[in-house]
């Protein structure tokens, strides 16, 4: 009796594994192709599938019928029910906690006035905008501090902000540059060169560089492309993230 149960269990487990293996193969040929979902459920052009909680019903429906108004096609004409079920099994097999990093909350639903601030913060038509040096709400490059605490009261206060950590780097082989220290070790020193609108992470031998106060860099220079009204709108967006 016991023997039978074990046998039955392993046969079922095998059937399940087999469906996952078939699903994995079908996934590679139908889903993880040409810019869509990444192999093993990592994000490709389309969203990450691994590490997310889906129900089998929802997955089966989406694979069969697609998602209207998006690039996700339905596959019910090409794949029979068993094959769609196999792909669903495979995707479900990726939902274990070890499969991938959990999805980060990005682009949270913001009221329109805060959306405008967010759009300005990340405005891709102005190269070297806030997002080039600050991360917020899932996007951006974290060179400067996370803008959560001690936000300036308004545009004027932001323009008056004086940086504290930027140094003047005196170099053996180059002209001095405004440097934001990242790592000052006994043998290696890394700093951001802030003289470029896209800051450059430089690595020096400790003997090649001397950091002295007064970087000669002014944060206000990065704000020149923005009007006061725009900066206030950005600050409202940042305040909402707190």
């Amino acid at each position: 009796m016991k023997f039978c149960a074990v046998l039955l269990f392993s046969v079922l487990a095998f059937a399940q594994d087999d469906s996952i293996a078939t699903g994995a193969m079908l996934f590679r040929t139908h889903c993880s192709v040409a810019y869509c979902h990444g192999s093993a459920g990592t994000p490709g052009r389309a969203p990450q599938l691994a590490g997310r909680s889906f129900t089998r019903e929802h997955l089966t429906d989406v694979i069969a019928n697609g998602i209207p108004k998006t690039a996700m096609p339905g596959f019910k004409k090409e794949l029979n029910q068993a094959r769609i079920a196999a792909i669903a099994s495979y995707v479900l097999s990726l939902t274990g906690p070890a499969a991938a990093e959990p999805i980060k909350l990005e682009r949270r639903d913001l009221p329109p006035e805060l959306k405008a601030g967010r759009a300005l913060f990340f405005d891709a038509t102005r190269m070297g905008g806030c997002g080039a040096c600050h991360a917020a709400d899932g996007w951006g490059i974290a060179i400067g501090p996370a803008l959560a605490k001690n936000l300036p009261a308004d545009a004027a206060a932001l323009r008056a902000y004086q940086s504290e950590h930027v140094r003047r780097a005196e170099l053996q082989k180059e002209a001095p540059l405004p440097a934001l220290p990242v790592n000052v070790g006994a043998t290696i020193v890394t700093v951001y060169d802030l003289s470029s609108p896209l800051p450059v992470l430089r690595t020096f031998a400790a003997s090649e560089i001397r950091l002295t106060p007064n970087g000669g860099w002014n944060h206000a220079g990065t704000l020149r492309a923005f009007s006061d009204a725009e900066l206030n709108s950005i600050l409202s967006f940042l305040r909402a993230l707190q």
Binding site: R45, A124, G131, A135, G138, D193, L198, V200, T203
Partner: peptide, 16 residues
């Protein structure tokens, strides 16, 4: 082979 400089051209999540 020591890294000399690096620049993040744009946040890859933003530009896709």
């Amino acid at each position: 082979g020591r890294e000399f400089w690096r620049v993040n051209v744009e946040d890859f999540k933003q530009c896709g």
